[in-house]
Structure formats: structure tokens, C-alpha cells
């Protein structure tokens, strides 16, 4: 069952084209030239109930603009948009009651107060009955194991803990749709993993439809069965996430720290990204990752080794070239 649907959804911004220098600024006082920037361009998408969809794209791709239109914050310039049967920008109370949005860079928490205080306010905002409030709160607090942090001032929480609290606050009213804009931005590996596990649990146990925008491949790969890739406001890919990575993610990044100064050899078809006395960073074709790993472990004394997915920008660039 479709819960989000857009057709030819377009958002254009008009911006002042300033001419260079003081003369240009003076001319601008009397005669202005504007240019149109298309942030989202004839975008069609469909999300079904209960799906966990990833929205991928580099900076300026139009992801946040799209989320802002889906949540009703801004109005589209053209096209149709329907979220749970509502036109979002009408900002109807019944519509807002049914979704939640978490923006990684904008906090809903009161920094000087505790999360418990913020939750009390959200109980009133969403008009949640007391028993339901307690039940939901306990469910999420247990899931995240943050009971001890509920009465700590938000300003004293770490970034990862704050994001957990943001999610609890957002999910308190059992939204049907959760819009997540860069929830793991700036978080370390442990906190990111905890957030991912939590989101997966929420999606599976509560059936919440989740639309996740992220720069981190790992987030998308672990969580989203379906992905939408966009760049310059246009949709480049819409489909299965595994297929996407299989098709377009061609390489991995391997970082090796040697125990001793090692003048290591480089396997064929690998590209050196960085090389110091005891550190080597390589770009490796995805299919030979295992062989390369075996090669270094077998031939050198290794202190640490890390393998990362190819960064999102390169993948999107490749999709853009090939589609």
C-alpha cells in the first residue's frame, strides 16, 4: 500500500544573480537579474507502507528539499505530492500527528533540561494519553538502554546519546512515517551502529515507514532494502539497494597499519591513495578485496587493518555517468 507518492514534483528557487564588485552591487540596487535553481526536478517516487527507503545523493542533490516538501515545510513549485493521503503543505494537524522528522543538524531537545522534560512537552504536543505515553517511553528507553540518561541535562550528553534521545522524542507518538535526515552525521562507529540497530528494530517491530537520507553508505546498506539515488534534483536510481551496490560500487578502500616500517608491495589493479612509513591506503576493486586482504595478512606483520565502502560521491558520480 502506497504511503508516499509524488509525480513530477519540482521545486525551483529564484535567486539574485549578483554582479561582481561594487559597481555590480550598485547596479543591483536598481536592476536585478535573477536565476532559477531547480532543487528538485520532475521527481517521481513511491514508498509503500512499512518500507525502509534510503535517499542517497551528494551535497546539493536535493535530498533535504525533497524531505521538506514531503513534510510540508515548503511548498512544491510544480507536480503532485501525497503523503498518507494528505497534501503536506496544507499543514493539517491530522497529518502532522502521523509523522515525525529528525534532522541531524537541528535538535528538538531543550539543552538545559533533561530528555524527560522534553518528552513531557511532546506528550502534550501530540496529545498522548498517560498510559500510552508511559508504554511508548518505556519501550524506546529499553530498546536504547538509556534509562540512566533520561534525567541528565541534554547539554551533558554525548552526540551519540543526544541522537538516541532525538529519536525517542520523535517516535514517542508512534508515527506512521519517520523522516530521517542524516541521523548519524558526526557520530562515531559505535554510536552509528547502535542507531542503526534501533532503527531496524523500530521498522520491524512497529511497522514504521522510514525514509532515511544519509551520506554514509553503511547506513543505507545495512538498513534500506530500497534506495533512491538523486543528483542535481533528478532521480538516477530507484530500486533494490543490494543491486545498486552490486552494479555501481566498484571498489573499496583498505587502510593498513604495519607493525614495522614495511616497504610493501602493491597488488595489481590496486591504486595507492596514501603511503607513509607504516601506513598504506589503497583503492581496491571490490571483487579482489579478499585476495588483497589475504596477501597482506600472509606477507606482512600488521597492526591494524580497515576496509571501508567506496564513498557515496564516487558511486553517485558513476551512476550519473552510466545512467
Amino acid at each position: 500500500m502506497e504511503i508516499i507518492q509524488t509525480e513530477n514534483l519540482t521545486k525551483r528557487y529564484k535567486r539574485y544573480k549578483k554582479q561582481e564588485g561594487l559597481m555590480g552591487s550598485m547596479k543591483g540596487l536598481f536592476h536585478r537579474e535573477y536565476e532559477e535553481k531547480t532543487a528538485v526536478d520532475a521527481f517521481n517516487m513511491t514508498v509503500n507502507k512499512g518500507e525502509f527507503v534510503g535517499l542517497i545523493g551528494p551535497n546539493g542533490a536535493g535530498k533535504t528539499t525533497l524531505v521538506k516538501m514531503l513534510t510540508g515545510i515548503i511548498a512544491p513549485t510544480e507536480g503532485t505530492i501525497q503523503v498518507m493521503g494528505y497534501y503536506p503543505n496544507k499543514l493539517e494537524k491530522a497529518f502532522k500527528q502521523q509523522y515525525a522528522v529528525v534532522m541531524g543538524q537541528k535538535s528538538q531537545l531543550f539543552f538545559e533540561l533533561t530528555t524527560e522534560d522534553t518528552l513531557k512537552l511532546f506528550q502534550q504536543i501530540y496529545n498522548i494519553p498517560e498510559d500510552q505515553y508511559k508504554k511508548n517511553k518505556n519501550f524506546f528507553v529499553d530498546l536504547f538502554q538509556v534509562k540512566d540518561l533520561m534525567n541528565v541535562q541534554v547539554r551533558n550528553l554525548s552526540l551519540g546519546e543526544r541522537m538516541k534521545m532525538e529519536l525517542i522524542v520523535a517516535l514517542l507518538h508512534n508515527p506512521k512515517i519517520l523522516f530521517l535526515d542524516e541521523p548519524t552525521i558526526g557520530l562515531d562507529a559505535v554510536a552509528s551502529r547502535q542507531i542503526r540497530t534501533f532503527l531496524k528494530d523500530v521498522n520491524e517491530s512497529k511497522g514504521t515507514t522510514i525514509l532515511l537520507t544519509s551520506h554514509y553508505m553503511e547506513d543505507i546498506k545495512v538498513l534500506c532494502k530500497c534506495s533512491i539515488v538523486m543528483n542535481h534534483g533528478r532521480k538516477l536510481y530507484d530500486g533494490n539497494t543490494d543491486l545498486l551496490f552490486e552494479q555501481y560500487q566498484k571498489s573499496k578502500k583498505m587502510t593498513i597499519y604495519f607493525e614495522n616500517n614495511a616497504d610493501s608491495g602493491i597488488p595489481e589493479s590496486c591504486r595507492i591513495l596514501e603511503k607513509t612509513k607504516d601506513k598504506l591506503v589503497l583503492e581496491i576493486p571490490k571483487e579482489i578485496t579478499e585476495k588483497v586482504l589475504e596477501f597482506y595478512i600472509g606477507h606482512y606483520s600488521i597492526r591494524d587493518i580497515g576496509i571501508e565502502e567506496e564513498e557515496i560521491g564516487s558511486v553517485v558520480e558513476r551512476i550519473y555517468r552510466e545512467v
Binding site: 513534510t71 499543514l91 491530522a94 502532522k96 522528522v101 537541528k106 496529545n127
Partner: peptide, 12 residues
Amino acid sequence: TGELDLYLTKPV
């Protein structure tokens, strides 16, 4: 600053 976004998305 765009902080208004969070106000517009709440049912009050």
C-alpha cells in the same frame, strides 16, 4: 536559520 521547520512539523 530554518529553525521554524521544527515548529511547522508539529501538530500544534
